[in-house]
Design a protein around this nucleic acid. Structure first.
Lengths: 133, 133
DNA sequence: TCTTGACCTTCCAGTTACTGGAAACATTAA
DNA sequence: TTAATGTTTCCAGTAACTGGAAGGTCAAGA
């Protein structure tokens, strides 16, 4: 599996796949005789995990910690479980905030009659005229 | 309402609040005689909206479009409704992906007995040895 | 009134996490 | 064998902040 196949499988550009190995986020892949990177399923799965975590605002440092869970889970189980649980709570918080964002936008869409009538309660609430706050 | 109050209200650092006006993402605030920025509730509400959108991976460009919805909703309603609906679908997709991330991490946590027993089915599946893929 | 400390200003440089492009070597298909 | 495509390294550029310097402002207290 060379880099473009791994890139496709993980949903991450080749450039970024290289970068993630350069900074040691994922293990550096083996090389073919001619120097081509050769990826295995294990690394690809990590890349997928990183992509999803990055999409939701976890930093590279966070990803490093999250990936360490994979390696360390059976070692210092208690500490690691606490860390993972903290991250789970963060994800749950993100889910709630995402729901708020969704609802706010859905409200806009619902309030919009899709024609040219000028009365829109949402616009009234968010226009530039000075308000209560 | 000066910049630190607006910063607190919106949950965004003062630096970033200034930056968002510099790049024209939110309207440039009025100034006091001495040059201090003066914020109103309307702009603060936009800043909150931007913060939430940014936290979920919408780019500054995306935020610009989203904010335009507020201004343009009662104008070209049909087009704008289509754009908003597209964004809603994206948010829904993000929610599903976030759920996957959550489940994956929850699986790790559940599988971890919090002690030092060495058998962990998740680790087995994600270890560095070559796998099926 | 003066001063002290917190807050504000602009400007410019640095950071994070990529991302694009050049130059050169490798592989494959015709 | 040659053309197209894929890969390599290296270095520079971008997006979106973020930190720090140098200096002006404001409100409270001696």
């Amino acid at each position: 599996m060379n880099i473009s196949a791994a890139s496709k499988a993980a949903g991450i550009p080749s450039k970024t796949v290289r970068y993630y190995a350069d900074i040691g986020l994922v293990p550096a892949p083996f090389r073919s005789e001619s120097g081509y990177r050769i990826y295995d399923g294990s690394t690809v799965r990590k890349l997928v995990f990183v992509r999803r975590a990055r999409e939701f605002g976890f930093s590279i440092g966070d990803c490093r910690e999250l990936l360490d869970l994979y390696e360390d889970l059976n070692r210092s189980s208690a500490d690691v479980k606490r860390l993972a649980t903290k991250r789970l709570q963060e994800i749950a918080r993100k889910q709630r905030e995402l729901q708020l964002l969704h609802d706010e936008l859905a409200l806009l869409v619902d309030a919009c009659h899709g024609d040219h009538r000028p009365d829109c309660p949402i616009i009234d609430g968010l226009s530039d005229r000075p308000t209560d706050a």
